[in-house]
Design a binder for these strands. Structure first.
Lengths: 225, 225
DNA sequence: ACCTGAACACCGTTCAAGT
DNA sequence: ACCTGAACACCGTTCAAGT
């Protein structure tokens, strides 16, 4: 839905409505959907315009009528995965629950599509990201955060979630990645007593750590009522 | 220095010492150094094995004797950029200063090499990252954080910094990126009143926001003495 | 309006060979 | 021990052409 929004000068004009009975011919929606499937299956490096077209039963170059470039396919796929339909506003309700829900949904989606975490740093913020930022800001505002402190509050939460998902996805990926012993996944030896003592890298309660850190941050930003 | 560490089965054996007067022939160090230059100049997509070899005055394939693959060049370049020489321990000293210094150095380095932020999510954590984590943990431990809470504290700070640099680099990149109006850099219209009111996306005091958020987080994690 | 194949200008990497 | 060019199996994308 939000994936429709198009750059200034696509070859395709803003289309009217689907011609009704036209079956599953090529469309931007279908392309993006299959791209997400492929990305899920083979990762960011596994996506090929030729492969994507193949999977759609189309000639290799047919995609370019619906889509400007491979870059754009990445943009659209990322944005598609980041959509968020909030539960109804629940007037005068639980701001904290709203924030936690949205951020945990963010994290869950990114982890379900690990390529999205690796793509995110390269791409600008799309409409769905913007929407989440707005939600975050308005909830914090409702919670009583003064306008002067709003930016710091938003960024602190945002950064926490971004960092958590990116780091987690990177760790996950490292384990699957290569045949060879990854040259960079050094084990914490005697050089790293604190890490070893705290079991930092062995602790696999990522979810718990995320939730605790988030609570802590929220407490700091908005003193519990 | 740290970049020397090699995967299990490189074609090159662990070398003894440089043969002294052998001039600037090819070496892993030189390859990585030039790769960083090229990455700085042209971004992650601009690095080519052929181009890298060219710039080193070598035949295209000579690199493969020193390095296993392009992937490894990325790994080594990233790790090279993330090195950290801490100021001397300053026994019994200022843990908070140590933490802030290390994290601000981290952020500064990543922003000086924007490609590093975009590469990080795809790569496992190298020895230099591990070293920074150890520093962080030991400083927090010195500050009195109990072992049971150490992981949450480390991850909270880590995530904050990761998120901040990744987000910032992504914004910076978005502005330079394309010729066309980026389809995804939607402007906050009337749909996003909170963002607009808080000037979230216009505020360019990134450094200040980073520092404030960091202080806030540290206060939450380790009550000020 | 929508799709196509041939062709171009690239890639990373294998390999057999040079010194 | 170190470097090389030719060659392979791919890429994304342009273009002129089909329906």
């Amino acid at each position: 839905m939000a994936a429709r929004r198009s750059g200034a000068r696509d070859k395709r004009a803003q289309r009217e409505d689907m011609p009704a009975g036209s079956g599953p011919s090529l469309s931007r929606e279908r392309i993006v959907a299959v791209a997400v499937e492929l990305l899920d299956a083979h990762g960011a490096d596994g996506l090929t315009m030729r492969g994507l077209a193949d999977r759609l039963g189309a000639g290799a170059m047919s995609l370019y009528w619906h889509v400007g470039s491979k870059e754009q396919v990445f943009d659209l796929a990322l944005d598609a995965v980041l959509e968020y339909r909030a539960p109804p506003p629940d007037e005068g309700g639980d701001w904290r629950g709203d924030v936690v829900h949205m951020l945990e949904d963010w994290r869950a989606r990114m982890l379900r599509h690990p390529w999205s975490a690796s793509l995110l740093p390269r791409r600008a913020l799309g409409p769905n990201i913007l929407h989440r930022l707005e939600l975050l800001g308005s909830a914090l505002s409702r919670a009583g955060v003064a306008d002067a402190h709003l930016n710091v509050a938003i960024w602190s939460l945002w950064n926490f979630v971004m960092g958590a998902t990116v780091t987690r996805a990177s760790f996950e990926g490292a384990r699957v990645d290569k045949d060879a012993a990854p040259p960079h996944l050094a084990r914490p030896g005697e050089d790293h007593p604190t890490i070893q003592r705290s079991h930092l890298l062995l602790d696999d309660d990522w979810d718990g750590a995320f939730r605790k850190g988030l609570d802590l941050l929220l407490d700091g930003l908005v003193p519990r009522g």
